[in-house]
């Protein structure tokens, strides 16, 4: 073998040891159009992949839909319960009977005074005349009442405390009771507290359920995307060797996660809408028994949008976590 030596130790200037790699200088326009191009591609290919593996996709969307529908349903129920309870406002109000000596003018002054307080939402004065008129209408005592010389009824103040006073606002109550102008105060604190407590508990339970099931959707999407990634490990390895950035590798999976979330959320909204529809009849009957004082609280347009947006975000997030973990695990070691 003929040899042309020595070449091994040719003297040669070492190139400057730059730490940063010279970036390709590309115009902003070119980079923008490249970015758009890649998003368009990921948008299409992620959808195509879902269609290519219909069962896996449908299963994921179904599980997500159900997991999201549960807290949503709970929310609708709670919302209606709250509306119902809100209708039972009497229970929340203090009925304050003034001393018979207090005239209507004094009652009005007292009402104005109470109305200034921060913990009072509204005060309504019911004069003895009004009381009598009401009484006359309600009972069959019209004739009997006619016999009365003077009106025996006192002035009454109906005091609504601020809505959020969960414990029944004992300070206000005590003050009213202690007031010399007041004869007696009627209220149903225990009932009110119990109802508030139940609603509060329901709200808390819903929050917990929402968090748990939100986490579940995150895991479901994460797991599906993880399997997608494993199925495409070779493709990922190859494009990485060709200089694909982490963003490029991640993008189609983020789109996939987004789609799972979007479709899952939409499914949940539809499912809850159907359940609502099924419940409508019995619920309306129940409402009718309350003299239709309350309307059925259905979905507006805002809640479904919010749910779908949130689940899309969850899907995206699940995909992001899983794909980022995969990318970090594959980095070259020293």
């Amino acid at each position: 073998m003929a040899r042309a030596r020595p070449q091994a130790n040719r003297l040669r200037e070492a190139p400057p040891a730059n730490q940063s790699v010279p970036r390709q200088r590309r115009s902003l326009r070119a980079r923008w159009s490249a970015w758009i191009q890649q998003h368009r591609e990921s948008f299409r290919s992620s959808l195509r992949r879902m269609v290519e593996r219909p069962w896996a996709s449908i299963l994921t969307v179904l599980v997500m839909g159900i997991a999201l529908a549960l807290p949503l349903l709970f929310y609708v129920l709670l919302d209606n319960a709250r509306a119902l309870s809100g209708g039972l406002r009497e229970a929340r109000e203090f009925t304050v009977f003034l001393q018979t000596g207090e005239g209507t003018d004094a009652a009005r002054r007292f009402a104005a005074e109470l109305g200034q307080r921060k913990d009072v939402a509204a005060v309504v004065v019911r004069t003895p005349e009004q009381g009598l008129a009401e009484f006359r209408q309600l009972s069959g005592f019209a004739e009997a009442l006619d016999v009365l010389q003077d009106n025996p009824l006192p002035n009454v103040l109906v005091v609504s405390p601020m809505a959020d006073s969960r414990v029944g606002n004992p300070a206000l109550l005590e003050e009213l009771k202690a007031d010399p102008r007041v004869d007696m105060v009627q209220y149903d604190a225990t009932w009110r507290q119990r109802l508030s407590a139940i609603l509060e508990f329901g709200a808390r339970a819903m929050q917990a359920l929402t968090i748990l099931l939100g986490l579940a959707t995150l895991l479901v999407v994460g797991n599906t995307v993880r399997m997608d990634i494993q199925a495409r490990a070779e493709e990922i390895a190859v494009v990485q060797l060709m200089g694909a950035s982490d963003g490029y590798v991640r993008r189609p999976f983020l789109y996939a996660g987004f789609w799972y979330g979007l479709f899952g959320g939409a499914l949940a909204v539809i499912a809850v809408g159907l359940v609502e529809l099924a419940m409508r009849g019995p619920l309306l009957e129940l409402l009718a028994s309350y003299q239709n004082r309350f309307a059925l609280h259905g979905f507006g347009w805002r809640e479904p949008l919010l749910v779908v947006a949130a689940s899309s975000l969850l899907g995206w997030l699940g995909a992001w976590v899983v794909s980022t973990r995969y990318l970090i695990a594959g980095r070259p070691q020293r």
């Binding site: 400057p16 730059n18 010279p22 970036r23 390709q24 060797l241 950035s245």
Partner: peptide, 16 residues
């Protein structure tokens, strides 16, 4: 001109 031992993780694609 790039010292490959010291190229940051995010610049690897550029080298490749």
């Amino acid at each position: 001109g790039a010292d490959l031992g010291r190229v940051r993780q995010r610049s690897i694609p550029q080298v490749r």
